[in-house]
């Protein structure tokens, strides 16, 4: 039985955890040059930079590795007037892309959420077996898992075993 789901790790990217109080969100958006998403799970894209709202005062920003200054510099410049926490976590995580018509079903083997409800352009922090991940639906049949580096072998192992089951028609 054909099972055409591709699992691949992506190259390194710049990643930042951004935290600030509600009243400073406007200043953050202004400094970055685009409006930060205001609903949890909403992902906003502006050129090469993405921002995903994970919690009431928390965003995960990404950009190409060689463009990290685009995020660091403007935010540092407004710190005195709009205090916030910007912490680089580029090396902390590795992204795994899972794509194909059965990608959602494959991910469901270890993710307890109802993935049908995760619409395109949304991302959430959730759990994959016992591993905390950020799961984003990039396209209808394309997902990205952001996993802390040392947990990647376990996640890849789970995806590999589940893939074999699908290939056997289980």
């Amino acid at each position: 039985m054909a099972f055409n789901t591709i699992v691949e790790t992506l190259p390194a990217m710049g990643r930042f955890s951004l935290r600030c109080k509600r009243e400073n969100t406007v200043a953050m958006s202004k400094a970055l040059g685009f409006e930060l998403p205001s609903t949890i799970s909403e992902l906003v894209r502006s050129g090469n930079v993405t921002a995903l709202k994970l919690g009431p005062d928390e965003w995960m920003l990404t950009c190409p590795m060689d463009e990290r200054a685009k995020i660091k510099e403007p935010l540092a410049a407004v710190y005195a007037d709009a205090v916030h926490s910007l912490t680089e976590v580029s090396s902390r995580e590795v992204s795994i892309r899972v794509s194909g018509p059965e990608a959602e079903e494959l991910l469901s083997t270890s993710c307890p959420r109802n993935l049908r409800e995760l619409t395109v352009g949304c991302g959430v922090r959730t759990v994959f077996d016992s591993v905390q991940v950020i799961l984003t639906r990039e396209e209808q049949n394309q997902f990205r898992l952001d996993v802390w580096r040392s947990f990647v072998p376990h996640v890849m192992g789970l995806l590999s075993v589940a893939t074999k089951e699908f290939e056997c028609g289980l």
Binding site: S17, R19, C20, K21, D57, V83, H84, S85, T87, E88, V89, S90, S91, R92, E93, W148, R149, S150
Partner: peptide, 12 residues
């Protein structure tokens, strides 16, 4: 308090 915490165990 205006302070925020981020895990960086695997950043370094």
């Amino acid at each position: 308090l205006d302070v925020w915490l981020t895990s960086t165990t695997e950043q370094w």
